[in-house]
């Protein structure tokens, strides 16, 4: 049985402007020791998915509308507050994007690391401090026995993110959810942090959900990948399947926009338009208006569901993501001039 099984998760935000369907029917599973990457642009619902699993969605305006998230047999979404507190920080922990705002500025690192242990374990101060120092050493903080007494502001951004990782891993959780853990950091520090997560994961057998907008980070660190667009998963599979045999037009378009993959002289491909307004009902494929593939006929009602195309590789096939056609051919024919952007200006 998988460690975590999510089925048809939907989280909506009820705002004055209407109901924002931030996550609208997401299903996936993750095994012990596995790394699952969730990629997508801002607003695609990747962070909301994670916050929903941890039940950290501010309610109201947010509400988990439906779905099941079975963690070791228990449904996280139905669990009572006190049971949830036993699991959070102990068996499932989370690393947030911004290490500046997720540590308490008034408390020493030692206090925060000891508290994290004593909430879940019967452990005395001395032993907890010892473990805290050990944890800091493992994430590569030099002179940990002295640095543990510092306050968060005395650390640099990279060091603070290390403290966050040490804190998240101190109770040796089964599942670590990392929401853009390196987005606020420099590339050199990013490489260090990802390395630390990987090492600790190998040692403890932790399952990791890595949320990021950077396809490069996913390529190097994930076993499985979910690509999200407009609140749904549009493609999922192993990293190799998603990178080398991408089926969905969105995944393929996204890959075409990355400068490091393109020849220098070539113009970068741009996805025309903007992501859809999530307060409106989406009929057919959400990517339809921005899709480079030739479209015929009217959009169907309801969004296409994930279909398995072999070996666990799934994508939301609306019938137009012509899987045999090469995107290069379509683009060569199509007009990629960035002046005419059909979607631009429609917003606001």
């Amino acid at each position: 049985m998988a460690l975590l099984e999510v089925e048809d998760l939907a989280t909506h935000f009820h705002t004055r402007e209407g109901t924002v369907r931030a996550v609208d029917g997401v299903s996936f599973s993750i095994d012990k020791g596995e790394t699952l990457g969730i990629v997508g642009e801002s607003g695609s619902g990747k962070s909301v998915t994670c916050y929903s699993l941890m039940r950290l969605i501010p309610e109201p305006p947010g509400r988990i509308e439906r779905g099941v998230a079975r963690f070791d047999g228990q449904d996280l979404l139905q669990m009572g507050k006190s049971d949830l507190r036993h699991i959070r920080g102990d068996r499932i922990s989370m690393i947030f994007q911004d290490p500046m705002t997720s540590l308490n500025p008034y408390l020493r690192i030692s206090t925060q690391l000891i508290e994290a242990q004593q909430t879940h374990r019967d452990i005395d101060n001395k032993a907890a401090l010892f473990k805290a120092i050990e944890g800091l050493e493992e994430v590569g903080i030099p002179d940990a026995s002295n640095r543990v007494k510092s306050y968060p502001h005395e650390f640099s951004g990279g060091m603070r993110q290390r403290v966050m990782i040490a804190m998240a891993l101190i109770n040796e959780p089964d599942l670590l959810i990392a929401d853009e853990p390196t987005t606020a950091l420099d590339v050199t520090v990013q490489a260090q942090i990802l390395d630390i997560i990987k090492q600790r994961q190998e040692r403890l057998g932790t399952a990791v959900i890595l949320v990021t907008h950077d396809l490069g980070v996913v390529a190097g660190n994930c076993d499985k990948v979910n690509v999200m667009y407009a609140g749904q998963i549009v493609e999922s599979g192993s990293a190799e399947q998603v990178f080398y045999e991408a089926k969905h037009a969105y995944t393929r378009s996204l890959q075409k926009t990355i400068p490091s993959l393109q020849e220098k002289g070539q113009e970068l491909y741009t996805i025309p338009g903007l992501p859809p307004d999530l307060t409106k009902t989406i009929n057919g494929c959400a990517f339809h208006p921005r899709c480079p593939f030739p479209k015929t006929g009217a959009a169907e009602t309801g969004r296409p569901t994930l279909k398995d195309v072999g070996d666990g590789h799934c994508f939301a096939d609306c019938g137009y993501c012509d899987s045999s056609g090469s995107i290069e051919d379509v683009l060569a024919k199509g007009d990629t001039d960035d002046i005419q952007l059909p979607g631009e200006g429609v917003e606001a």
Partner: peptide, 27 residues
Amino acid sequence: KALTSAIPVPDPRAEHARKRVILQGDQ
């Protein structure tokens, strides 16, 4: 070298194959 090798490349096979120059600490 450290900077260029730290850039993640969106290509799983290349990413697993390459050697990184990992720097110590922060600036």
